[in-house]
Simulated assay, not measured.
Amino acid sequence: MTEVDKYILQFEPPIQSRLKSLRELFFELYPNCVESIRYKIPAYKVGMHYLYFAAYTKHIGFYPVYGLWELEEELSAYRAKGTKDSLHFPHNKPLPIELVRKIIKQKAQLT
């Protein structure tokens, strides 16, 4: 069992399912991406950058999301208040899988 498995298992099954969906998306897009725990949360190295997610009581945080100007209109619906680089995906709404897919792909292309 990996450290990321342990991280996911500490949450209730519905949240585990959401976290697993995000995790699977990274490996779907980048089968050889490096998965680790950094800052006590799951981290994925895509290209030169890391992306992270973390579960909270009311949402999943997704970080850092900056420098993706062409996605800003889509990102704005999820932008955490008072931040430039954090998204919040509320548990009471479906995960925006297609948006996350775009974020991962674009982050992997940034130098």
Rank of each mutant, 00 (worst) to 15 (best):
42 P>E: 13
21 S>F: 00
79 R>C: 03
19 L>V: 01
51 L>V: 04
76 S>T: 05
32 N>S: 15
102 K>C: 06
44 Y>L: 01
78 Y>I: 03
84 K>W: 01
98 E>L: 00
106 Q>F: 05
67 G>S: 01
99 L>A: 11
46 V>T: 15
93 K>E: 12
28 E>G: 15
100 V>P: 13
13 P>V: 11
55 A>G: 13
97 I>V: 11
109 Q>R: 13
93 K>A: 04
100 V>W: 10
93 K>T: 05
102 K>L: 14
47 G>M: 01
31 P>D: 07
62 F>S: 10
14 P>N: 09
34 V>Y: 09
8 I>K: 03
90 P>T: 10
80 A>D: 10
36 S>H: 07
91 H>L: 10
19 L>T: 09
9 L>C: 04
8 I>D: 07
111 T>K: 15
92 N>T: 04
94 P>E: 00
28 E>S: 14
34 V>N: 06
67 G>M: 07
84 K>P: 08
34 V>G: 11
64 P>C: 07
67 G>P: 00
74 E>Y: 06
42 P>Q: 08
50 Y>R: 03
17 S>V: 13
44 Y>M: 03
24 E>I: 01
95 L>C: 08
3 E>A: 14
86 S>F: 15
4 V>Q: 03
106 Q>S: 06
7 Y>F: 02
29 L>V: 09
106 Q>M: 15
89 F>P: 12
44 Y>Q: 12
36 S>C: 08
107 K>P: 06
95 L>V: 01
91 H>S: 08
108 A>F: 12
101 R>Y: 02
99 L>D: 05
57 T>S: 13
85 D>M: 04
66 Y>P: 09
107 K>S: 12
45 K>Q: 05
54 A>F: 10
71 L>E: 07
22 L>A: 08
27 F>R: 00
16 Q>K: 14
98 E>P: 00
49 H>L: 08
64 P>A: 05
81 K>D: 13
81 K>A: 15
103 I>P: 08
58 K>F: 11
75 L>M: 02
88 H>M: 09
41 I>N: 00
46 V>C: 07
60 I>M: 03
109 Q>W: 11
3 E>S: 09
52 Y>C: 04
89 F>V: 02
58 K>S: 12
43 A>M: 11
99 L>F: 13
89 F>G: 01
46 V>A: 03
34 V>E: 14
96 P>F: 00
34 V>I: 10
59 H>G: 14
39 Y>I: 09
34 V>A: 06
15 I>P: 06
52 Y>L: 10
108 A>K: 00
65 V>K: 12
54 A>T: 01
47 G>Y: 09
100 V>L: 13
100 V>M: 14
104 I>F: 11
67 G>E: 05
59 H>V: 02
59 H>N: 08
56 Y>Q: 07
63 Y>S: 09
45 K>W: 02
56 Y>G: 06
107 K>N: 06
55 A>K: 02
10 Q>V: 02
26 F>L: 00
16 Q>L: 01
8 I>T: 00
25 L>P: 10
23 R>N: 04
6 K>A: 13
